[in-house]
């Protein structure tokens, strides 16, 4: 593997996370709390990208399942990120299915229409990139790209792990993440500045930029 600086297994807290998960599996509740604090910010960021303001509720449901099934989990800190992201994703998709049955006034499409105007300069945008603005941007992407970006950049999964969460091939997820990041960087008004998410993939498959969302 090259020196592309890709997000990959080896997240800053993965050693600590793996140790905490192992102790939690032996019954240590303070270790479970440590794991929660390490994982929750990324998980919540991912869920906010999927379900917006309902993210906290969906995360709560996910954590109930994580707590219940922790004894079944096998893996290290990086694996735990992937396992918990998968559980959170399933809860989010359940939530979105229920929402479709129960019409709501605010929809994802509405959020897209209300996307804030681009910042005047790329630098300014990066310096002041607020959580809300960043979320609006990500949610304006096709779902496949948004999820790939969120799993790679926010949850901190490597390509294969993100692909496993999404049930897709690693190459497809890498491409989706790259296109999503490139589109976001352009939205912010600069050169894409996205050099570390897989230019190889771009060369291989950048025949068009039409990314039909496959989730209807």
């Amino acid at each position: 593997m090259g020196q592309t600086g890709e997000p990959r297994r080896g997240h800053a807290h993965d050693g600590e996370l793996g140790a905490a998960v192992a102790r939690a599996q032996e019954g240590d509740d303070s270790a479970f709390a440590v794991a929660y604090r390490i994982v929750q910010p990324g998980l919540l960021g991912y869920l906010r990208g999927l379900v917006g303001d309902e993210a906290e509720d969906v995360a709560s449901d996910a954590w109930l399942e994580i707590a219940r099934d922790l004894g079944r989990f096998r893996g290290d800190g990086a694996g735990f990120r992937g396992w918990t992201a998968t559980i959170a994703r399933h809860r989010a998709l359940d939530h979105l299915r229920r929402q479709r049955v129960r019409p709501r006034p605010a929809t994802l499409e509405q959020d897209v229409l209300e996307l804030p105007a681009p910042h005047s300069t790329h630098d300014q945008a990066l310096e002041s990139l607020s959580t809300e603005y960043a979320l609006d941007l990500v949610r304006s992407l096709p779902r496949e790209q948004a999820e790939a970006v969120l799993l790679r950049v926010v949850v901190g999964l490597d390509g294969p792990a993100a692909a496993r969460v999404l049930g897709k091939r690693p190459g497809a997820v890498r491409t989706a993440a790259y296109r999503g990041l490139r589109r976001l960087a352009r939205e912010l008004g600069g050169d894409d500045g996205v050099t570390d998410a897989g230019p190889r993939t771009l060369e291989e498959s950048d025949d068009s930029d039409t990314d039909g969302p496959e989730h209807g």
Binding site: G45, L126, T131, A134, V154, L181, D196
Partner: peptide, 11 residues
């Protein structure tokens, strides 16, 4: 890089 900034904002 941009991905790191975006990740920090979203977390």
């Amino acid at each position: 890089g941009f991905p790191a900034l975006l990740g920090a904002a979203l977390r």
